[in-house]
Nucleic acid binder design. Structure first.
Lengths: 208, 208
DNA sequence: CGAGATATATACAGACCTGTATGTATCTTG
DNA sequence: CAAGATACATACAGGTCTGTATATATCTCG
């Protein structure tokens, strides 16, 4: 997992727009618009208008829209991994609890009225393999790589024989619960995927 | 599950382009372009050019691009449910086998070099709640509703106490394995989610 | 054959897109 | 205070987008 400078991203959420420097104001506005709608349906002009910034200022800070999109994704990734680290650490030392804390964190984020699914799955949908935006695609690939590494680091202490399979199962439950929450807002048993992860982990532990 | 006329969609895949009537030719071309890339990044002009059809002919058959997008999604839905029905029926009468057949079908489709993830998850990513395309959004909602009903109909014979939770778990594994396959092409244990479904179903049966 | 439907070719309107050019104001800092 | 960096406002170039208009050709079928 590459280290990432989160200083740029962390307090973007709490501060109000006009208390931020132009670059942060652009990033905050773009982040909300990109996530609420989609990247392709939000134009530079709208981001500039809503962030109250001049066009030249925008292009001084972000050389292209693709670079802004990649920065937005890195921003979301930093926030998400920060939340994951906090949640798993607070869950105590037991590996099982730490993995299950992921699903508690997910369920909490589903409650937000602004929840719109996983930014990275949605990014994959918009920027497929044929898209000519290498920075965006590299950012997406890095996220999925890092998430897998993170889950593996939580599962690793269990010393399971088939660790790779269990990691893939947990990842599937994570992504699947995100899709479920996005596709059927509320009409879904919130604890179901958490319970599933518990059953799978306990079964894997028993098998050794 | 609403009945759907699949006659328009079924043999679209096998026949060559110039053996099809204009409407089918447009739909086949659009389907491939939309799925390989995305809906927003493929323009009407490109679909017209590659399907070898005049612009007026296109707008005679499809009143708008949104209508074509919805038709594309219905096309994908019909193919997918048709494949699911075949796979589950061929799996025999045992409910467990029938559910697991879903994952065998999924793993088979992951092998195709044209695989690009779930068209409906990707559709959600492009057409969020704020998009002004009611036909597309209704088609997406119908798909997720139908998939849930389908899984429920497979689980129902098991007469489980917590059937709703098990259905949600299976759905999460389905969507999660689709995301995994799209995000980490090949670098994933193919049988992991199938095994997970088996463990979860057996545990649920034991609990009654 | 002949008429109506269907498909074709091409041009165009109007809106939106990303990115640049030009010039002015404000803010920081030595 | 003065100078350089930073941000502002506005206009514009060149491209793409969806959808329409106009006129011609081909195909079906009574």
């Amino acid at each position: 997992m590459k280290t990432l400078d989160v200083s740029e991203y962390l307090d973007l959420e709490s501060r109000s727009l006009d208390a931020l420097a132009p670059r942060q104001r652009i990033l905050k506005t773009a982040s909300e618009l990109f996530y609420r709608n989609s990247i392709h349906t939000v134009g530079i002009d709208r981001i500039i208008a809503e962030s109250g910034v001049a066009k030249m200022t925008f292009y001084k800070h972000f050389p292209s829209k693709a670079n802004l999109a990649a920065t937005y994704l890195r921003h979301k990734s930093a926030l998400w991994f920060d939340m994951l680290a906090t949640a798993t650490e607070q869950a105590g030392p037991a590996p099982l609890d730490r993995v299950l804390a992921i699903f508690d964190a997910l369920n909490a984020s589903f409650q937000a009225p602004t929840f719109r699914g996983c930014p990275f799955v949605r990014g994959l949908a918009e920027f497929g393999p044929d898209a000519e935006t290498p920075e965006v695609q590299a950012t997406l690939a890095a996220y999925f790589h890092d998430l897998r590494k993170f889950v593996a680091s939580l599962v690793q202490p269990l010393k399971l024989k088939n660790q790779e399979s269990v990691v893939v199962q947990i990842l599937a439950l994570i992504q699947g619960s995100l899709v479920n929450a996005q596709a059927m807002r509320g009409g879904v048993e919130p604890l179901a995927t958490r319970d599933a992860a518990k059953v799978l982990l306990e079964a894997a532990v028993q098998r050794g």
